[in-house]
Amino acid sequence: MRRNDREITDRSEIDRFISGEKILRVGFWDNGEVYIVPVNYGYAVDDGRYTFYFHGAMAGRKYELAQARPTVGFEIDGRYEIISADTACGHSARYQSVIGTGELSLIEDSDEKKAALEYVMKQTAGRMGLEYSEEVLSRTAVFKIEVKTLSCKAK
């Protein structure tokens, strides 16, 4: 990170930020192109290691890239506020962001899918304990990113 003075290393502050946001952007490498897709997410922290979860269709570019190229980048940003000034170059912004890399995989086991979707529901809807139809689960792709690197910064 170029601006070490903006780096956040306090895990509780990082957790507070991640838990308050709703959109994770996942970046895939696709034959010379970067493909970025925004997704609703949930997450878990186990022994200081983050795992992000999201879902989608069992077809399409995201699904195919998840199987072909499991190393991904990700980003979450928020708390954005413009700081006005009298000159164009004087304007600035406040923000916070998390960026990182990880290994993406598909969750196949029905019970593990339900557990992952509980994290997503908690994050996006503030609810847990809902029922998941086996028929719907069978046609839903549930992904997990096991985080390898993660950094957080704020201004």
Rank of each mutant, 00 (worst) to 15 (best):
E135M: 08
V26K: 01
E64C: 04
A57C: 03
G32K: 08
P38S: 06
I83D: 11
V142S: 00
N31D: 15
Y95L: 05
L104C: 12
T149E: 15
D111E: 14
R49T: 15
F74E: 14
D86G: 09
I76K: 03
N4L: 08
A154H: 02
M128K: 10
G126E: 02
R11P: 15
Y63N: 05
F74W: 05
D10W: 07
F28T: 01
T140E: 04
M58P: 05
G48S: 14
Q123D: 00
M128L: 03
G56L: 09
A154T: 09
N4G: 13
D77I: 08
V26Y: 04
I23H: 05
A154W: 00
Q96C: 14
D10P: 06
A59K: 15
T51W: 04
Y95R: 02
T140L: 08
V142L: 06
Y53T: 09
A68L: 15
G73N: 05
S12N: 11
L65E: 10
G56Q: 05
C89D: 02
T87V: 12
A93F: 13
A116G: 08
Y53Q: 08
S151C: 09
A44W: 05
I107A: 08
F143Q: 03
C89S: 07
G32S: 09
D111S: 11
T149W: 12
I76T: 04
K153F: 09
A141H: 06
G48V: 01
V45K: 13
M1Q: 09
Y43V: 04
Q96S: 15
V45W: 00
G48T: 02
L137H: 07
G73I: 01
S97T: 13
E64H: 13
D5N: 14
C89E: 03
E7K: 01
E21I: 00
Y35Q: 05
S105H: 00
R69H: 13
S84V: 11
R16N: 12
G48C: 06
N4Y: 07
L104N: 15
S97Y: 02
D10V: 10
D86C: 03
D5W: 00
L130A: 03
P70N: 11
R139Y: 09
E64G: 10
D109L: 04
F54W: 12
D5Y: 11
D77R: 06
